[in-house]
Amino acid sequence: MSAGEDLEFKKQLSTNCHGLIDGLETGYGYKPSLAAGIIFCVLFGLSMIVHTVQLTWKRTWWCAVFSLGCLTELLGWAGRTWSSQCPYNSDAFLMQISTLIIAPTFFTAGIYVLLGRFIQILGRDSSILSPKMYLWTFCTCDVVSLIIQAVGGAMASAETKKQGGDTAPGTNTMIVGIVFQMFSITVFVGCTADFVHRVFRRRLLQAMSGPITPLFGAMVFSVLVIYIRSIYRTIELSQGWTGYLITREKYFLALDGAMMVAAVVVFNIFHPAWLMPSTKTMGIVSEDSCIYATELR
């Protein structure tokens, strides 16, 4: 088969649905698991439905970011399910890679808002940054990193369609985006750790009444699993499209899919609408917490 015929054959594979061909690698380096795709579609779909019911019932509209994140994850895993039947289809591949990179941003946005609420309740002294600074600083970093990754992904995708195309510049651009995202998340984790340290050192949670402690624990847990996922994706992409991690699905299932399920399902169980004090009592609670913290100094 000539080079021109080979390129035409690959184009047909990328636009049609064809089963796995022995000796011809897919964009993944493997054939995605149908069972895993269905399981994660079900998990994210159920979480999305429950989150939507919860936020509508209690009118906590900012919690819609969790539903949107689940929807984005659902689309990504639908793309991987599609790829399990059509492993060479480029639309399915691009569908999953773009959505699964974006989805965690919705979850982190929800955590930024939730952390801001905790700071309002426990007092400004509980955090090095103000609630608005958390939201604007880290959301801006997320958007910038996603734009860089999107540009890199588009560059790499365009090169794969060319004869002898060089995907290195696009891949390197994506790595810059994911490293920047990793840096911003690391800073956020550091700020969160400082917040947790201040809360426990001043025993601020002991001044609270009601079930706020489980929600606090859920937030910390969600931050940790998202951070684990970010470390994995940074190492994965830095190894390139043929690296060890990216070509082994078990790591993706455990360190991306499972981590994201845990990050969002924990808020189905410990939902802010049920556990966060209402805004009517927030000022009173915050004032009492600050007095309590002052007495401890």
Score class of each variant (00 low, 15 high):
Met95Asp: 02
Ser126Ala: 15
Thr279Phe: 11
Ala263Arg: 04
Phe180Ile: 02
Leu115Tyr: 10
Leu114Met: 14
Val265Asp: 10
Thr137Lys: 06
Ala158Leu: 08
Glu159Ala: 15
Thr186Ile: 01
Leu115Arg: 14
Gly240Arg: 07
Glu25Phe: 00
Ile185Lys: 07
Cys141Met: 14
Ala262His: 00
Thr279Ala: 14
Gly27Met: 11
Phe106Asn: 02
Ser278Trp: 04
Arg229Phe: 03
Phe183Lys: 02
Trp136Gln: 01
Leu129Ser: 11
Phe270Arg: 10
Ile49Gln: 06
Arg117Trp: 01
Ala154Asp: 06
Met282Cys: 13
Ser157Gln: 11
Leu253Ile: 15
Gln163Asn: 10
Thr60Lys: 05
Ala3Cys: 04
Gly23Met: 14
Ile291Lys: 15
Ile101Arg: 02
Ser14Tyr: 03
Pro277Arg: 04
Thr281Gln: 14
Leu245Met: 07
Ala158Ser: 12
Arg203Glu: 15
Met48Glu: 13
Trp62Cys: 00
Val113Tyr: 14
Met174Ile: 09
Thr192Lys: 02
Lys11Ser: 07
Phe188Gln: 14
Leu122Ala: 01
Val261Ser: 00
Glu8Val: 02
Met95Ser: 04
Ala103Asp: 07
Cys141Phe: 13
Met260Cys: 02
Ser222Leu: 11
Asn16Trp: 05
Gly69Phe: 10
Leu275Arg: 09
Asp288Thr: 12
Tyr244Leu: 08
Cys86Ile: 04
His197Asn: 09
Leu43Ile: 08
Phe40Leu: 13
Gly23His: 13
Thr160Glu: 14
Pro272Tyr: 03
Lys161Phe: 10
Met219His: 07
Ala293Glu: 12
Lys31Thr: 13
Thr173Asp: 00
Leu245His: 01
